[in-house]
Design a protein around this nucleic acid. Structure first.
Length: 660
DNA sequence: GCGGATCAC
DNA sequence: TATGGTGATCCGC
């Protein structure tokens, strides 16, 4: 690197240096790679393409964003910063206090999973650079290929340029599912309630196993990895830490075929987090990293702490967490939307586009009926020949699921965009209905859909009672949060988990949610399934509902997000700001200029008050909702808790959403 | 409720 | 020749 030349904006001596790809960021197996060369090749192969031009457009937009943030930053006065620093400090203290070091989590991550499985079924591939995928996209590359800079999500034709010997193997999910099942048999022995992240990842709570066997987590990790290898022939890596977020970070450290243990010790934790690059934290991606670096020069979590007052100032509720809290990751919930999309060679032929649209509508309808879903919002997605993405949506009075209905409305949406040259069309249905789709579904209609869906016309949401059951569930968790939904969800909720991504074993593993005592409380108090298993376990413990609620208040008092603002208008009067600074009800301090936070804070107290009233009425720690008020109450408590869980997932994750 | 954007796998 | 598909979430209207 020679200074001046390296900061070029594309017009310098080495234009490739300013082309931001995701392919050179530090990842397992990329250590010895000549990044400069990879960067250059990727740039050369991409330069001038429509894709490249779009990337440049997006990049310019991010640069603009960075500039704006810098300006805002410069406008902050010392007084502002001092106020924000107070808020930031308090949040840090609160999160510190809420940290739980009593659990031991293990994250397992299979090494180059698809590639490893393919090598297992074709040993001649051993030792040769190989990638699973095709010329347009690669899913996984083995470690031999990674030495050349070949990576997942890289187009195949670029990979071949980097590594002319590269062997391409098409994806075969049947195989991957099979081996995934084998690994999970092992996981289950260590934690019967393990949480499957994807085919090749899982989270295990090994606290009990360590106790029972009276061994260190390190030995459990070794033993588990040995078992996986023995029973599958595949290697994996493991990370052990007090929570899932950190466990996942740890499993990446000694990849492949290695492990890293982060002890449940405060100092060790702080040291570890301090030097951790922010990009390693789930939820911080390419863009957020770029912005934090560009605006504040932040690279590590420690630097986030140093800049906490600025982060609070610019991103409102943002960043107080800083990876210090209990946190936790994968949000496994019920499905909220169903979609499909296809890429093809760009065309503006309206007949062709219509044909594509009809095909998508057909497939989507089949998928929906297989899952017993009806929705009222339809979204059309288009990617233009220049890679610009557009979405157009309608929300209907009726709930739909038939291909005819979908196509009819999709066509209208598409028509409004014509003429247009597109390379991708997608359809998505959301806002699912629990109740009767019969209102819009005519069982007598003879559609291709009905025949294709395995001739099982009854297996749609209208005349199959078992499907109606989980239908109710989906609907109610989505909106109504009624008592019925809770009862249903306790029994059936896993049926509504996305079947496209999860195998049967996934369903199994997710029963943790309904079998766990915490989840019971969650569901009862929230009226919706928990979105965060361990986060809530750690925070809520086994306290009563009211205590839990106040606990959340203390920890999260200032962190309510803006989408409740609409409800806030008349609620300030439920409380007072003492000296225009301190909340009269809970004592939390919020400077007058924290307008949003104040509104949100008063929202919280209102919800709390309503909840208290409900508790009294029903004389039960987990109040059931009365018809009249349930929407308001559950709506409030639900949104608060979801935010809490998001907050805990990663203290950073809320940050990136504030960067616009 | 809509549309753009980001992220993870 | 050529840069994916599915689902979720958030923000600012």
């Amino acid at each position: 690197m020679e200074g001046a030349e390296t900061k070029g904006d594309g017009d310098g001596v080495r234009p490739w240096q300013s082309y931001h790809t995701v392919y050179t960021t530090a990842k397992a197996g990329m250590e010895g790679v000549d990044k400069e060369k990879v960067q250059r090749v990727v740039y050369e192969m991409s330069k001038g393409s429509k894709y490249f031009q779009n990337e440049e457009r997006k990049d310019a937009y991010i640069k603009q964003k960075i500039d704006n943030l810098r300006i805002q930053c410069a406008k902050l006065t010392q007084a502002d910063l001092s106020n924000y620093q107070k808020v930031a400090d308090r949040r840090i203290v609160e999160l510190e206090a809420s940290r739980d070091l009593s659990r031991i989590w293990l994250h397992v991550d299979m090494d180059a999973f698809y590639a490893a499985v393919e090598t297992l079924s074709n040993p001649t591939l051993k030792g040769k650079p190989m990638a699973v995928g095709g010329m347009s996209m690669i899913s996984t590359a083995n470690y031999e290929a990674r030495k050349f800079g070949v990576r997942a999500a890289m187009p195949g034709f670029i990979a071949r340029k980097l590594c002319p010997e590269l062997i391409f193997v098409p994806t075969d999910f049947k195989k991957y599912n099979h081996y995934s099942d084998l690994t999970r048999k092992v996981f289950r022995r260590y934690d019967p309630n393990f949480i499957a992240g994807s085919l090749d990842e899982a989270y295990l709570d090994i606290t009990e196993v360590c106790k029972e066997k009276n061994v260190k987590s390190e030995e459990i990790a070794e033993e588990l990895r040995a078992s996986v290898y023995e029973e599958t022939g595949l290697t994996c890596s493991a990370g052990v830490a007090p929570n899932r977020l950190l466990a996942k970070v740890c499993s990446d450290i000694n990849k492949p075929n290695g492990q890293y243990i982060l002890p449940n010790d405060r100092m060790a934790l702080m040291t570890f987090i301090s030097s951790l690059p922010i990009r390693k934290i789930g939820g911080i991606g390419k863009v957020t990293e770029q912005i934090l670096k560009g605006v504040f020069g932040i690279n590590t979590c420690e630097q986030m702490l140093e800049k906490s007052s600025y982060l609070c100032a610019l991103f409102s509720q943002s960043t107080a967490g800083l990876g210090l809290g209990q946190t936790d990751s994968p949000q496994v919930r019920f499905r909220k939307s169903i979609s499909n999309e296809r890429t093809f060679s760009a065309t503006e032929d309206e007949v062709l586009l219509h044909k594509r649209l009809a095909e998508l509508a057909e497939i989507l309808s089949i998928d929906m009926q297989r899952e017993g879903l009806c929705g009222r919002t339809l979204t059309l997605k288009l990617k233009t020949a220049s890679f610009e993405v557009r979405t157009r949506a309608v929300t209907l009075q009726k709930y739909i699921s038939s291909s005819e209905d979908i196509l009819k409305h999709a066509q209208k949406l598409l028509k409004a965009e014509l003429p247009i040259s597109v390379r991708l069309i997608g359809l998505r249905v959301s806002q699912f209905n629990g109740d009767k789709c019969s209102a819009t579904f005519d069982p007598t209609q003879k559609t291709i859909t009905n025949f294709i869906s395995s001739g099982d016309v009854n297996r749609n949401c209208c005349n199959s009672s078992d499907v109606v059951a989980d239908h109710d569930f989906v609907s109610n968790t989505e909106t109504g949060l009624s008592i019925d939904s809770r009862q249903t969800s306790q029994l059936d909720w896993r049926d509504s988990v996305d079947a496209n991504h999860l195998s049967d074993v996934d369903y199994q593993s997710f029963t943790v949610w309904k079998n766990d005592g915490v989840e019971e409380e969650q569901t009862s108090s929230n009226g919706a399934p928990s979105s965060n298993y361990s986060g809530f376990a750690e925070v809520l413990g086994s306290t009563s509902f009211q205590e839990q609620y106040e606990g959340i208040n203390v920890k999260n008092g200032t962190n309510f997000l803006a989408d409740e603002r609409l409800n806030s208008c008349c609620q300030e009067k439920t409380m007072l700001w003492l000296n225009d600074y301190k909340c009269s009800l809970c004592g939390i301090e919020l400077p007058p200029n924290f307008v949003e936070e104040r509104l949100e804070h008063s929202d919280f107290h209102l919800a709390e008050k309503l909840q208290n009233e409900e508790s009294r009425i029903h004389r039960t720690p987990f109040p059931t909702q009365s018809e009249g008020q349930k929407d308001v109450i559950t709506g409030q408590s639900k949104s608060k808790k979801q935010k809490l869980s998001q907050k805990e997932y990663s203290c950073f994750d809320s940050l990136e959403n504030k960067l616009d």
